[in-house]
Computed example of a mutant assay.
Amino acid sequence: MDFDLPGDDHPDRKAVRDWLTEHPQPSGRQLAEAGYVAPHWPAPWGQDADPIQQLVIDDELKRAGVSRPMNPIGIGWAGPTILHAGTQEQKDRYLMPLLAGEEVWCQLFSEPQAGSDLANLGTRAVRDGDEYVINGQKIWTSLAQFSAYGILIARTDPDQPKQQGVSYFICPMDAPGIEIRPIIEMTGGHTFNEVFLTDVRIPAENLVGEENRGWSLAKVTLGNERVSLSSGGALWGMGPTAEDLLDVVRAHGGADDPLLRQRLAQLHIESQLLRLIRLRTVTAAIKGEPPGPEASIRKIMADEHGQHVFELAKDLAGTAGVRDDVGPYGGDPAMWGHGFLFAPALTIGGGTGVVQRNIIGERVLGLPHDVDVEQGLSWAEARRR
């Protein structure tokens, strides 16, 4: 299979370049209405683009210095779930502003006692006429302080098993009863938040899908989250990439040390493997299929790859690597210093590496589920049952 992109004379490239000639500095709304924010989505929100078309659009926008709107949770997670299960009214109301970056979104999933074991959530949603009354607490909510809406899962039937009786909502973040408290990282930044919901009223029309059937939608969101968190830059799709680091090394004459050269070569190999897996996930999206276990495979690889990128960047900085104001070869400290401090979080956020390996073991390799140690079963006994 040929994984090279089409040449400069390809009609898809010409179409994008012609559009950019007419829109040299496009707004987020113009990019969204042209279908260039999420090209693989169906019209009118995308272009039904196949993998090659999507990569060509990405390439041409990058070449022109045009950036898509920054709304990672909205575009990467909330939007695909609404597209998958939302009503037509919900799609018409939320998708275009979301793509245009006009309304930022956050995710209200994790709880203090339900992080990796998300189905153990305790937030309650009780129907009261045409509204649901929400009470509970969420944590590690990225971008909550900037968000207009959040995707929220809450328990609507506590008598059902924990992976049932859960419903999926669109939550206005300015609703009375919502309190947002910042969580300050060791980087000094404020990415994450705690969110407290006290008697928050959400219109029943904000329910996505069926009541008590939200767990399947949460899995769609988590699959898209794992794709989104493992795309682009080494920091969950943001920040520098392995190729950025390699460019810095090349610009300074390369590396003579054979061990450093081997580590640099390994980074390049990892980045190419991730690029090829991305083609598989893009193809699944185009076919209308939700991300499968390959999303977990890619997230494991991408998170560990990101840590490798920043570990090597620190080592390349030499003795200056202990400082927070110097990058490799004197590079931008804002890019590399922050990234090194943030990188340990990569294998925890969005589902830990251990959880992802369990998903792969059970859904890809067909291994048995975890044994209930309280019952004292051996692996052999568990398999016989």
Rank of each mutant, 00 (worst) to 15 (best):
G86E: 02
G65H: 01
Y94D: 02
P291W: 09
K219R: 14
E210L: 10
A251M: 06
H338Q: 13
F196E: 10
G86V: 03
F196Y: 15
D199M: 02
A85F: 05
V195M: 06
L5Y: 00
L222D: 09
A313G: 07
Q107E: 12
P42Y: 05
E131H: 13
K91Y: 03
Q272W: 09
L118H: 08
K287R: 15
I286F: 08
E374F: 13
I139W: 08
A38V: 14
L229C: 12
V249M: 04
S231K: 12
T198K: 15
Q90N: 01
Y94S: 00
H190E: 13
G136C: 01
P158S: 13
Q107Y: 06
G129F: 04
A43V: 12
A317V: 07
H369N: 12
M238W: 09
A175K: 04
V16D: 02
H23S: 04
G254P: 05
E89G: 07
R250W: 01
K62C: 05
P240Y: 06
G349D: 05
E270V: 04
M186N: 14
E311I: 08
A154M: 02
V326S: 01
T21Y: 01
I359R: 12
S231T: 15
D59V: 05
V166P: 04
W77I: 13
M301L: 15
V56H: 06
A317S: 13
